[in-house]
Structures are given as structure tokens and as C-alpha cells.
Simulated scan of single mutants.
Amino acid sequence: MAKHITDKDINNIVEFLDEWDLTVSLTWDKLCNAINEELSLNYTRQTLQKYVRIKDTYKSVKEHASGTKPRNKKILPSSLKVAAGKLEKLERENERLKRENSSLLEQFVVWQYNAHIHGMKMGQLNQPLPDKTRN
């Protein structure tokens, strides 16, 4: 039976995609093989595509790599190429995090509205999670 993907695995895969070398074409098979080799995670394309964070990040990296999204293509001395590459990766990660944050804020507004409609009080919403040691 296949192992279920965890939140930590999703985060590791998304961060791995943020660091993807844009000179290498990105495919689902290449991603599956790369995360198997680098992260020791063995998931299929179908499994990875079920998760919005992975799918959206894959799509964004694919757009960057294919040239659909503008990239900084200035000719740089070799001493600056590494820095430019790191900067580009950080910009992609920042873009992804902004998209994820926006999605979470939208979800929060839905929850806030539903809590108000169902008469939940602020005290109920702020109640701490149960302690795991107590059942």
C-alpha cells in the first residue's frame, strides 16, 4: 500500500521546486525521479498532482523554465551568476509564498463568515487545541 503524503513532504517538495534549475526542463517524471533521489520520497505524478501547493508551484516553475514568464537574461560575469541564480530562486519562492498566503487568507474569510452565521463566539474560536497526552 502506498505511503500517504505528509504536510512535511509537501513542504519539502515545494521547496525543492523553488530551487529547480531553470535550464533543465521540468516534467512530472523528472520531478518524481528527482525527489526520489534527493529527498527519498517515492510518489507518482498522480499523487503529486492532487495537492494544490505542489501543482501550483510546478506550474509556476514550468512557466519560468519555458520562458512564458519573463526572466532576467542579462549576461553576467561568472562571479555574479551564482548570486543571480540564488536571487531568482528566492524571487520564485517569494512569489509562491504570496500566492499561498493569499489562498489562506481567502479560506480564513470563509471560515470567519461561517463561524459568524452559525453563532460561534470569539471564546469558542480561540479555545486552545486539546492536549495530546489527554484522550
Rank of each mutant, 00 (worst) to 15 (best):
M1D: 02
M1R: 05
K3P: 08
K3I: 02
H4V: 01
H4L: 13
H4G: 04
I5Y: 01
K8C: 00
D9T: 01
N11S: 12
N11W: 00
N11L: 04
N12Q: 09
N12R: 06
I13C: 04
V14Q: 03
V14P: 02
E15F: 04
F16S: 05
F16D: 05
L17R: 11
E19T: 02
E19F: 04
W20V: 00
D21K: 13
T23K: 09
T23Y: 04
V24R: 10
L26E: 04
W28S: 02
D29F: 05
D29L: 11
N33M: 06
I35R: 05
E37N: 06
E37F: 03
E38S: 15
L39K: 06
L39F: 04
S40I: 11
L41A: 01
L41G: 03
N42E: 12
N42S: 10
Y43M: 03
R45Y: 00
R45I: 00
Q46T: 13
T47M: 10
V52Q: 08
I54P: 02
Y58R: 03
S60L: 11
V61A: 04
V61N: 02
K62E: 12
S66Q: 03
S66P: 00
P70D: 08
P70N: 10
N72R: 10
K74C: 06
L76Y: 14
S78A: 12
S79K: 13
S79G: 12
L80I: 08
L80Q: 14
K81E: 15
A83Y: 09
A84Y: 03
G85S: 14
G85Q: 13
L87Q: 14
N94Y: 09
R96I: 11
R96L: 06
L97E: 14
L97K: 15
K98D: 09
K98C: 07
R99L: 09
S102M: 15
S102D: 12
L104Y: 10
F108W: 10
F108R: 07
F108Q: 14
F108T: 15
V109M: 07
Y113A: 14
G119H: 15
M120I: 03
M120F: 12
M122K: 12
G123R: 11
G123V: 02
N126Q: 08
Q127N: 11
L129H: 09
L129G: 08
D131V: 05
D131I: 01
D131A: 12
T133L: 05
R134L: 07
N135C: 07
